[in-house]
Design a protein around this nucleic acid. Structure first.
Lengths: 139, 139
DNA sequence: CTAAGGGCTCCCCCCGCTGGAAGGTCAACA
DNA sequence: TGTTGACCTTCCAGCGGGGGGAGCCCTTAG
């Protein structure tokens, strides 16, 4: 299989696949004309990578997951640990985003959004730390 | 004020402030020794930027917000529009993360996490698109 | 006089790709 | 046989939003 074929199969852009080779995630063979030649197993790995990335795992996570995937003797505990840590990262991000959302939604509600210049959003962004602390406490 | 002073006041690292000058968000003066000299207004802008960035606004958003902040004739509708768009971006990200979280949490639950190699997490990551679609539908 | 603690510029690094230029290869068709 | 046009190759640059660090200058206190 050439790169275009695995790209179609895995849903990853060819550029990304070349990059994954660069950083050592896949190691396709080369045919005499210099083209990359992918085996079935490479195609599987790439599909695996695509799904892991879609779940938000970092490239380093993927590298470790792939190593475990290939290791028949692995302990599922190792995999679970990686996934759990990732779950925590996701939870952290969700929390952060929700806090932003809450503040922002509040400000958007307060803002008249008309032709006048008075704007609570700008007022909040420009206000001093002391006031911000007060707002936080009252919220 | 030198850069260290505004860094302390705004809570932004000096590096970041230099970067903001680079991209034209602030335009401090220079004193004869080459040091940046920040006015009160620069300090306010930087604090403004720090808070806008903390709410997740992109640099380009910040640029626009800052312009509106400085424009006494602005219409609050313009500010509100930027904020609303950002709110939508945040909602999109939260949704995305929640979907990841749901899938991942399910997998983590299923995984025994012991010394044995059997692992539903790896099984899911390596399984074919058809099966994935089925799982999605049943979920 | 010297040392510490600012400040300055400059360039490379991070992540995870993405785009583009300049060129080689291959299959189909006239 | 020549010529398209779709592939493929490498390499270099850049995104956002800074961070790290080298190697230098300036200032102030002891």
């Amino acid at each position: 299989m050439n790169i275009g074929d695995v790209a179609t199969l895995s849903g990853l852009p060819a550029k990304t696949i070349r990059y994954y080779e660069d950083i050592g995630l896949v190691k396709p063979l080369r045919s005499s004309n210099g083209y990359r030649t992918f085996r079935e197993s490479d195609a599987h790995k790439l599909a695996f990578l695509g799904r892991a990335r879609a779940l938000g795992f970092t490239i380093e996570d993927c590298r470790n997951l792939l190593a475990l995937y290939e290791d028949e003797e692995r302990a599922s505990a190792e995999v679970k640990e990686i996934a759990k840590q990732h779950l925590e990262r996701i939870d952290g991000k969700i929390k952060e985003l929700k806090e932003m959302r809450a503040t922002l939604a509040h400000l958007v509600e307060e803002c008249a959004g008309d032709h006048r210049p008075d704007c609570p959003i700008l007022a909040d962004l420009s206000m001093k730390r002391r006031d911000e602390d007060m707002r936080r406490k009252s919220a």
